[in-house]
Nucleic acid binder design. Structure first.
Lengths: 205, 205
DNA sequence: ATGTATACGTACCGATCGGTAACATTGTCA
DNA sequence: TGACAATGTTACCGATCGGTACGTATACAT
């Protein structure tokens, strides 16, 4: 869900002036529609209609639909790391518990009807072209996720931290995808358990 | 890559007559374009152009673009289980080796530039609506994958076979997705190693 | 009150979307 | 050669796509 924080960081780059109010409504609506139904599936007409604004307003705040999609993902990115940091902050100095908290949360999120997975992952699937503005944001987010997981694997004292970090990433991505593929009762509910088994098997003896 | 086998099973349902030749060219081209660039990203005009046929020919063989996409996935499904069964047949009676062979193959496939992941997974991301013809095929394929993996986990003598089977599925889906997200050197290359660790940790002692 | 800038709306653009009607042409087998 | 099925040709449909030219309203400062 979109929040109101840091909107000005994502919609209008550069100049520090306050953004038009229409831009916030547009981004909020675009966030919701892009996430739930996909970026390619949503036209700008539907966005402006649901936002109660007009098309020129959209194009005054965003240079193109592709850039609006990138802005949506930048907002998604902010909220993603907020959730991640919450799990980390809940267990200071205990990376294994941090991971477990994050994965338990993911496992729970996937167990709702019409779960739509990770907006970053979905956007990358929709736009295979690496130069697409939305994909650039998506790839950066995933690189950062990999970096953090590998760092936590080091902290945990894994025998091969890169392998464990990557294994955790695979489980996480698998949970995002299978969550939207299987719905309730799908494999994603087992992500935390499997991660725990994998971590246990990967620690130095 | 599309093969020529079993085309008649996927393009025209019901009557057992040989399919028109244009239909095969159309399906081959659609297979390639849908897989590499996405279903929503490709218009029927581009398909018929690349296939060297005309639009009416497409709509004589396929009732709609959505059904053509479903036919593409049915073909994908056939080839998917061919690859799976190859890995199984290579190690009779040894499910752990079967899994390892299948995952090693996936790990290798992901390590090429512009890898595009699993066509089934991608289609599900593109079409969140569960009633979409393409998604119906995709979900059936994934259900079958889950069934097989859980059955193999039983054969392997896992303590909790459902959890292990689901864990393997998560790793596999993670490999598909991260393969296209990270490109060369990504986490997907560690899928076989992590699966092996997970299996080892999941067996009855 | 009046200028000035900024935000917004009406109406429109060409291109492309998926899909079709009507008819001409081809290849094949009897 | 006749007959039939498959394909091609051309032109078209309404809807939607992303995007814009241009006029209007509103706010604020002087």
């Amino acid at each position: 869900m979109p929040t109101d924080k840091n909107i000005e960081l994502t919609i209008s780059d550069g100049h520090a002036s306050a953004p038009p109010k229409a831009a916030k409504k547009i981004l909020d609506v675009a966030y919701d529609l892009f996430y739930r139904r996909g970026i390619r599936a949503i036209g700008v007409d539907e966005i402006v209609k649901r936002a109660g604004v007009t098309k020129p307003s959209l194009y005054r705040s965003f240079p193109s639909k592709d850039e609006l999609a990138a802005s949506y993902l930048r907002q998604y990115d902010l909220e993603y790391w907020e959730r991640f940091d919450e799990a980390v902050a809940a267990h200071p100095g205990d990376p294994r518990a941090q991971i477990k908290a994050f994965l338990t949360r993911i496992g729970k999120r996937t167990q709702v009807a019409d779960y739509r997975g990770c907006g970053m992952t979905n956007a990358a699937v929709e736009y295979p072209d690496h130069s697409h503005p939305a994909r650039v944001v998506s790839e950066a987010n995933k690189q950062e996720l990999r970096r953090r997981l590998r760092a936590m694997a080091v902290e945990m004292g894994a025998q091969d931290p890169d392998t464990l970090g990557d294994g955790l990433l695979l489980l996480i991505e698998g949970a995002y995808i299978s969550g939207q593929l299987f719905g309730l009762g799908g494999p994603a509910q087992a992500v935390s358990r499997n991660a725990d088994l994998l971590i246990e098997a990967s620690l130095k003896k």
